[in-house]
Design a protein around this nucleic acid. Structure first.
Lengths: 341, 341
DNA sequence: CTGTTAGCGCCTTCAG
DNA sequence: CTGAAGGCGCTAACAG
């Protein structure tokens, strides 16, 4: 196939084909109203001249951008550090691009706040937003609702106006982990959890306590400690827990990184895992498959979550204005040696 | 300050101010040729009506987008898993937005390849590209050079046409780590490194061997093993190394995650760290501050790297066509207990 | 089936 | 200092 000079406007192709710009436009958008022969001829010309059209002009003319924004709050260290975000971001970007949408990455930090993002969203005509790390006290969230920007929250369940969400079964995962531990004979459980304003943590708390209640044994003692997630917190938590009288025989962590710290510190204190203490994590990072002992954990369906977020957003954009129902995806509880009965 | 109906076009503001659209445009772009009084009046109106202009129309008119693309190869598992990318991505996005540029995130995967990215780049009039994970066999890299798209490589040193790069002193870091180990009395060193087609790994190899040569002691034995980075590789490498006769008394790893596996497995084999074997890592992830023993490692200037990448790209875009010189930033070697002499 | 005609909203000469 | 006019490249409505 010979390549001629790359053409830069629709009119050049039109001139070459001996038709008008409108016809070329119809061909490029696969719209009806062009004879098969002309269509083929134009397609060949487009191919030959490596012509791609100009997205900017198209946007201006159609009044929409076919692009969506992802907002990442860099000032929230939990987010930047959290091992699941790269994969989630990748999944969202993947799904968006497959649907013909471009992804614009917005980051907020200590100085550049939500106003800046909203300005860009308006100026750039971003069609919709995906917020992978919102919490109930998020300033952006309120503004997005007011501005009626179609938005999908990931990992935070809050619905209002043009805002819907996709999340996974954090509650069921913790319910299952907790129940399994109880059936395995554990009687003094501690949950190391993140702050409840992030609904993922809140749900895990719920599942944990519901499992305790449902088990219905008075001799069971349970406790929840809210802390930052991370290795250091795990270490600190163990130190604190074992300085007390009532020492847990099971520690459930809302992050594998925290669990790693817990495992390490239990080792130092001479506590056997899972003999003396069972430990579970959340996230299924690579480490957890290889730690000593291998860590029981929960895998979130990150790829499907990203895809679902995009699909929900597209529904809102192309649909008839109704905000679609939230979507809940299934987590997978992974049993390894660290919590063996 | 009262807010009236948000205005949506420059002409609305113009009508309100009793001037023409051109004048408002001049005000919005801080261009001369408007009387102080009119300028103030228009500014007030803009503020009052929360008017932001339309980026799309502006782009079309000016022929550029004020946006840059970041390309992330999701099919390269090393990249997705690697703990430094979130921070780097954040830094790039931050710097770009501060400079008034939008960031478009492109991902390639097994099916959607480089063609798709290049198409988008052309159609979207993306002004330039940042490639945070290129290697010498990267198909995109060649295409980008041919297409003369202003591009900055991060972490891979290759210069051609409109392509330049920013990187940090991987070589010096390894040189320093190696030299320190040798001066500490270690005599049998093994480097666990990634593949040389990624220049970061290649440079580390260089620094390692140069340090060995410079030390100039025949009794020193050194070896380099190329492997994937990650926890599992560290475990496997230790198993293999200690099944042999000549056992290293120092293991240098090109990633903290690998070093974590090494520490773990050495522990299982009953080898003391740093007593029997010194261990070093690279990346300074959170774990390394808390591991047993705390891990000596190298911190890359990720934030500055992202900022430098953006600044180089802007130089290319606004400058006089000359491709700017590459920039090398300083790594920081961090000594902790795992390599104590 | 195809061409023509208006815009989309802004920027940028060129006059005045 | 300001207004008017043309154009960026494409789409969509309307004729033919």
């Amino acid at each position: 196939m010979t390549r001629a000079e790359p053409a830069t406007t629709i009119r050049e192709i039109a001139a070459l084909a001996g038709v008008s710009g409108g016809t070329v436009s119809r061909v490029m958008n696969d719209k009806p109203g062009v004879g098969a022969a002309t269509r083929e001829r134009i397609k060949a010309l487009i191919e030959e001249h490596d012509f791609h059209g100009d997205a900017t002009a198209r946007q201006l003319s159609r009044g929409r951008s076919d692009s969506l924004g992802i907002v990442f709050p860099l000032q929230v260290s939990e987010v930047v550090m959290h091992p699941v975000y790269p994969e989630l971001l990748g999944a969202i970007s993947d799904a968006a691009q497959d649907a013909g949408y471009d992804v614009i990455l917005f980051t907020t930090n200590a100085t550049r706040g939500v106003d800046h993002v909203l300005d860009s969203v308006k100026r750039k005509r971003v069609d919709g937003l995906i917020l992978p790390a919102a919490s109930s006290d998020d300033a952006l969230l309120g503004r997005v609702v007011d501005a009626e920007i179609p938005t999908v929250l990931v990992g935070h369940r809050q619905r209002a106006g043009r805002v819907t969400w996709v999340d996974c079964t954090h509650d069921e995962a913790l319910y299952e982990q907790t129940t399994t531990l109880l059936h395995g004979g554990r009687r003094s459980l501690t949950l190391l959890n993140g702050p409840a304003r992030i609904s993922a943590y809140n749900l895990r708390s719920e599942g944990f306590w519901r499992a305790i209640r449902d088990f219905g044994d008075d001799r069971v003692t349970a406790d929840e400690k809210v802390t930052e997630m991370g290795y250091a917190s795990g270490v600190a938590a163990v130190d604190e827990l074992f300085a007390r009288r009532s020492r847990p025989d099971a520690i459930l962590c809302s992050a594998d990184t925290t669990a790693a710290g817990v495992l390490e510190q239990l080792g130092k204190l001479g506590r056997a895992v899972p003999g003396d203490v069972a430990v579970t994590g959340f996230d299924d990072i690579e480490y957890s498959r290889h730690s000593t002992p291998p860590l029981s954990t929960v895998r979130m369906p990150l790829h499907d979550t990203g895809a679902a977020a995009v699909s929900l957003l597209l529904e809102m954009l192309t649909g008839h204005g109704a905000t679609p129902e939230p979507r809940v995806l299934q987590t997978e509880v992974i049993e390894r040696e660290s919590s063996a009965g």
